Amino acid sequence: MSTHFQQVHQFNTAARGELPVNPATLDARTTGMCLNLINEEFGELIEATLTDGATLDAAKQKIDELTHILKNLAEEDLNRSPMKAIAQLDACVDIEVVTLGFSAMHGLPHDEGFAEVQGSNMAKIDPETGRCIKNEFGKIQKPEGWTPPDLAAVILKHVGA
Score class of each variant (00 low, 15 high):
residue 122 M to L: 15
residue 134 K to R: 10
residue 100 L to Y: 06
residue 118 Q to S: 12
residue 117 V to Y: 10
residue 100 L to E: 08
residue 110 H to F: 14
residue 95 I to Q: 14
residue 67 T to G: 01
residue 92 C to F: 12
residue 115 A to H: 05
residue 95 I to S: 14
residue 115 A to S: 10
residue 129 T to L: 08
residue 80 R to D: 06
residue 75 E to L: 03
residue 97 V to F: 14
residue 76 E to M: 05
residue 88 Q to R: 03
residue 87 A to W: 00
residue 122 M to H: 13
residue 90 D to H: 12
residue 125 I to M: 04
residue 123 A to P: 05
residue 120 S to V: 10
residue 94 D to F: 09
residue 79 N to H: 03
residue 119 G to E: 14
residue 86 I to W: 05
residue 73 L to I: 02
residue 77 D to Y: 04
residue 86 I to Q: 08
residue 120 S to M: 11
residue 112 E to W: 10
residue 110 H to A: 15
residue 74 A to S: 13
residue 136 E to A: 15
residue 98 V to Q: 14
residue 87 A to E: 05
residue 111 D to Q: 13
residue 63 I to K: 06
residue 127 P to D: 12
residue 91 A to G: 10
residue 97 V to Y: 12
residue 123 A to L: 11
residue 110 H to C: 11
residue 106 H to G: 09
residue 105 M to E: 09
residue 76 E to W: 03
residue 81 S to V: 01
residue 83 M to C: 02
residue 96 E to I: 12
residue 110 H to Q: 13
residue 124 K to H: 05
residue 65 E to P: 00
residue 111 D to Y: 10
residue 112 E to H: 13
residue 103 S to I: 00
residue 72 N to E: 14
residue 127 P to N: 09
residue 64 D to P: 01
residue 126 D to Q: 11
residue 65 E to G: 02
residue 124 K to A: 04
residue 62 K to D: 15
residue 134 K to I: 02
residue 132 C to L: 07
residue 64 D to K: 12
residue 98 V to L: 14
residue 78 L to M: 04
residue 128 E to I: 08
residue 74 A to W: 09
residue 106 H to Y: 07
residue 132 C to H: 00
